[in-house]
Design a protein around this nucleic acid. Structure first.
Length: 316
DNA sequence: CGCTTTTGACCCGCGC
DNA sequence: GCGCGGGTCAAAAGCG
């Protein structure tokens, strides 16, 4: 990794004066130090402490690098899992949903591709969009779909996605016995984002949330996390998303929190979309920055580099 | 009392 | 033009 090489080089730079340049005989350097030592007592102690500090920082940097690598590896592993799950779900859902479509519109079988356009134009699509998601995105990136897995017993349509929402309607749709709930962003009308939430007809433990538009404000769960208002802030070591949530009716995004009220939210349809990537990157970034030990270590490392062995509050 | 949720009515687009 | 279905509105109900 680049970071490890950076560590190495910075360490070398720090050590060089003590090790002595190739052309300069070591003893010459030592003589200089001894002379300095006579005129300025204690400098050896200081340089020793400096070396110690540098070694400590190098070790710390190494640890951080390893942590980062671990996080990246976990992320990649999870991402692969999600991709696998999504493809399985897609396979499972394609057939039943296409049957449904037949009943409501004759143009199906050829299906998937045709619906793409339909999906991009009207938000009234169903679960079978799963398989056409990527294409849909290229056509209309503002419509995104997210799948959340919840406990089967959880009948609410609350999705913790980091934003506050106001419910403005609910409908029973023809092709799904479960009602579809309509939400507007709580910041409306300044934020035009809407979402529809409905349980999957095939697997009622799966909630499908369709988002239309993009938020023009940070998510409230981030604010909440910084304010530490309630349990949701526990996002602590990880969570949340692009933006975060609230004190109100509540919706928080805890994608990374495995054990929440709504169990695990897995399926992410657009694994390869730039939006999702950014989302995940932001999640990683926010989770790291929310980790007190990480920020502490990072601050120490940075201040150590800048100020030297005696960083402390001065640089803060 | 104010805010949120519920829910029936209404609007609109699409297919026949 | 009509019916159907999805989406939205807004009054009423519920809740803290």
């Amino acid at each position: 990794m680049g970071s490890s090489s950076w560590i190495t080089s910075s360490l070398d730079l720090s050590m060089r004066p003590l090790q002595g340049p190739d052309r300069a005989p070591t003893n010459v350097v030592e003589c200089d130090f001894m002379e300095l030592g006579r005129t300025c007592s204690g400098i050896e102690d200081q340089s020793g402490a400096l070396v110690e500090e540098l070694n400590r920082l190098a070790a710390e940097n190494k640890k951080l690098t390893q942590m980062l690598m671990t996080v990246c590896e976990n992320y990649n592993a999870l991402r692969n899992q999600v991709i696998g799950i999504m493809s399985k779900n897609a396979e499972r859902e394609i057939s039943p949903s296409s049957k449904k479509r037949k009943s409501e519109s004759s143009a199906d079988d050829s299906g998937n591709e045709i619906v793409v356009n339909k999906a991009s134009e009207s938000s009234s699509t169903d679960d079978d969009d799963l398989c056409k998601k990527p294409r849909e995105e290229t056509i209309k990136a503002k419509i995104t779909r997210v799948y959340y897995r919840t406990k089967a017993s959880d009948t609410s349509l609350i999705v913790k996605d980091g934003h506050q929402w106001r419910k403005y309607g609910q409908k029973i749709t023809r092709d799904n016995p479960c009602p579809r709930a309509y939400f507007k962003c709580a910041h409306a009308p300044s934020c035009p984002v809407k979402k529809k939430v409905q349980r999957s007809a095939e697997d009622q433990s799966v909630i499908v949330a369709t988002y239309e538009g993009e938020h023009n404000h940070p998510s409230s769960s981030l604010l909440e996390a910084t304010c530490g208002s309630n349990a949701r802030a526990t996002l602590g070591s990880v969570p949340h998303s692009a933006s975060l949530s609230s004190s109100g009716p509540t919706v928080t995004l805890d994608l990374m929190k495995p054990e929440l009220e709504t169990d695990v939210k897995i399926s992410q349809p657009k694994v390869d979309s730039p939006e999702l990537r950014q989302f995940l990157i932001e999640q990683m970034a926010s989770s790291l920055t929310k980790d007190p030990s990480f920020t502490t270590a990072l601050a120490a490392a940075i201040s150590g580099k800048i100020v030297g062995p005696y960083p402390t509050e001065r640089c803060l």
